Computed example of a mutant assay.
Amino acid sequence: MEGKELEKEGLQLGHELQEAFFWFHRHPELSYEEYQTTEKIREFLTEHGIGIMDSELETGLIAVIHGERGGAVRALRCDIDALPILEESGVPYASEIKGKMHACGHDFHITAGLGCAVLLQQNRKALAGTVKIIFQPAEESARGAEKITETDLIDDVELIWGFHADPTNPVGTIGIREGYVAAAADRFLIKITGKGCHGAHPDTGIDPIPAAAAMVQAFQTVVTRNSDAFHPTLISVTRIEAGNTWNVVPETAELEGTVRTMNREDRVLFERRLREITEMTAKAYGASAEFQWYPGSPAVVNDPAMAGAAEETAKKQSFLIVPEESSMGGDDFSFYEEKRPGCYIKIGTGVGEAIHQPGFKVDPEILLPAAEYLMALFMENE
């Protein structure tokens, strides 16, 4: 009888999670705009008797489950924002907001986190300590985690788990590794100033375009000649803009791009070298340049002990363990890790189109198993 009751509860929760997932997918909201999403999360948690921390957050919230056994305060991060992408997934519950979609799986993250909260609440007599589930806004802005870390809401948290949808692996798989799993993601913006002139008389001006071209070429030498060949690093110039007609040498040119590094020292090195190359190259071409560096999220680094615990828990939950690939993509989960140990894992959501693509989709069959796995991370690893 007890087994049948548990099975019935599981089926009911699975149905609730699917319905919630469909709602979140239909109603995507961009970074810092997640008002309806936040209210839907609040409504779901309240219906299940789960506490919500008082805060001044405009979007996002933190659920809290107090175990009835003594123990540490631990946390789970679930990001909640969507992307400005027109959906082409073909699912019957597609986005109802043109030009916006959950193309990164954050709707899955929300729903699995809600399921985890419900399961922890149901099993709080056996739960050691307190679990805070962070429904975080604006991960896609690369700075949303700071909205949480700038408060005192999680100052008492001793360790934190994070997870992400993985469309490169089927349902039933979990990717885990220790060490670096995502890169620091920084942005640079360069304005080169020369002297405009007629295109037929370049000798009367200072052309900023050759200076810009030389910078693009020289930047790659930081990767090939300044950094350790065994350190993953990347520089991408993603925008070049200069001039507006065919017969005029423009006065200015702009370059914009991103730097991705894993190692802290490399991050410092790349900012310094790009600034030096920018200033010296501009000078060599008779121009001047303004270099701006916008630091993004640091690298995500998995705590070895937590990675080992995540793997053992996955095996007990009958998941297949696959190597979690390191990515030059970034995630602001790293801001939490700057203050406490953390572990960021990938949950297989069905092989398909990559994240941030219009055809990306998550197999809803993973919702309940993912919630059960996340719950087990806290129940089995005190």
Rank of each mutant, 00 (worst) to 15 (best):
M1W: 08
L6C: 00
E7T: 11
K8G: 02
K8E: 13
E9Y: 04
E9Q: 13
E9T: 03
G10Y: 02
Q12V: 15
G14A: 05
Q18K: 13
A20L: 08
F22G: 00
H27N: 15
S31C: 03
S31G: 10
Y32T: 02
Y35S: 02
T37V: 04
E43I: 00
E43S: 10
G49L: 03
G51H: 13
D54M: 08
D54L: 10
S55W: 08
E56G: 15
E56A: 11
E58A: 09
T59W: 10
G67L: 01
G71W: 06
V73A: 08
R74L: 05
D81W: 01
P84T: 02
E87I: 14
E87T: 14
S95L: 04
C104P: 11
F108V: 02
H109G: 03
A112V: 08
V131R: 05
K132D: 12
I133N: 04
F135Q: 10
Q136I: 10
E140Q: 05
A142L: 15
A142C: 10
A145N: 09
E150K: 15
D152W: 05
D155I: 06
D155G: 14
V157Q: 07
G162N: 07
A165P: 09
G172N: 06
I174P: 03
G175L: 01
I176R: 03
G179Y: 04
Y180K: 08
Y180G: 12
V181H: 05
A183H: 07
A184G: 15
D186N: 12
D186H: 04
L189Q: 11
L189N: 13
I190W: 09
I190H: 09
I190A: 05
T193I: 12
C197R: 00
H198S: 14
P202T: 08
T204A: 13
I209E: 00
A211E: 06
A212R: 01
A214N: 11
M215Y: 06
Q217N: 11
Q217L: 15
F219S: 09
S227M: 06
H231T: 05
P232D: 01
T233K: 07
I240V: 15
A242E: 04
G243S: 08
W246P: 00
N247D: 14
V248Y: 00
E251R: 15
T252C: 12
A253F: 00
E254Q: 15
L255N: 02
T258K: 04
T258F: 07
E265P: 07
E265M: 09
D266E: 15
D266A: 06
F270M: 13
E271K: 15
R275A: 10
I277V: 12
T278W: 03
T281Q: 05
T281H: 05
A289F: 04
Q292L: 10
S297P: 11
V300R: 08
N302T: 05
A305G: 01
A307R: 03
A309R: 13
E311A: 13
A314E: 03
K315A: 02
L320I: 12
I321M: 00
I321E: 01
I321A: 00
P323L: 02
M328V: 07
D331L: 00
D331P: 06
D332C: 07
F333N: 08
F333I: 14
S334M: 10
Y336Q: 11
Y336T: 09
Y336I: 11
E338V: 03
E338N: 05
C343A: 12
Y344M: 07
I345M: 13
T349N: 09
A354D: 15
Q357E: 11
G359Y: 06
K361W: 14
I366T: 10
L367E: 03
E372L: 10
F378T: 10
F378S: 05
E380K: 13
